[in-house]
């Protein structure tokens, strides 16, 4: 089992190590993810119903109120 896990680790490790263009792509990918999850998600895209109401009952009441007003 240990050997399998080590081989899997080696597979990924060697793969990442031998990347050329991939390094640039991973950099873009990581910057993008950080921006999406740590900037956009937290500061600009809160889940309105989750952050404004504590329970599902309150959320459904709010939505019904919005839909029937």
């Amino acid at each position: 089992m240990k050997e399998i896990l080590f081989n899997i680790f080696q597979f990924y490790y060697q793969g990442f190590k031998s990347m050329t263009l991939g390094k640039k792509l991973w950099t873009i990918f990581i910057i993008k993810l950080v921006f999406i999850f740590l900037v956009l998600r937290i500061f600009f895209f809160p889940n309105v119903l989750k952050s404004n109401f504590k329970t599902d009952d309150q959320r459904s009441n709010h939505v019904i109120e919005q839909l029937t007003k």
Binding site: G22, L25, W26, I28, F29, K32, L33, I36, L40, R41, F44, F45, P46, N47, V48, L49, K50
Partner: peptide, 17 residues
């Protein structure tokens, strides 16, 4: 793939917000 992946996640954020 690397540049396009996860751009769709923002659509899910927009649903919630």
């Amino acid at each position: 793939f690397a540049i396009g992946v996860a751009t769709g996640i923002i659509l899910e954020f927009e649903f919630g917000t």
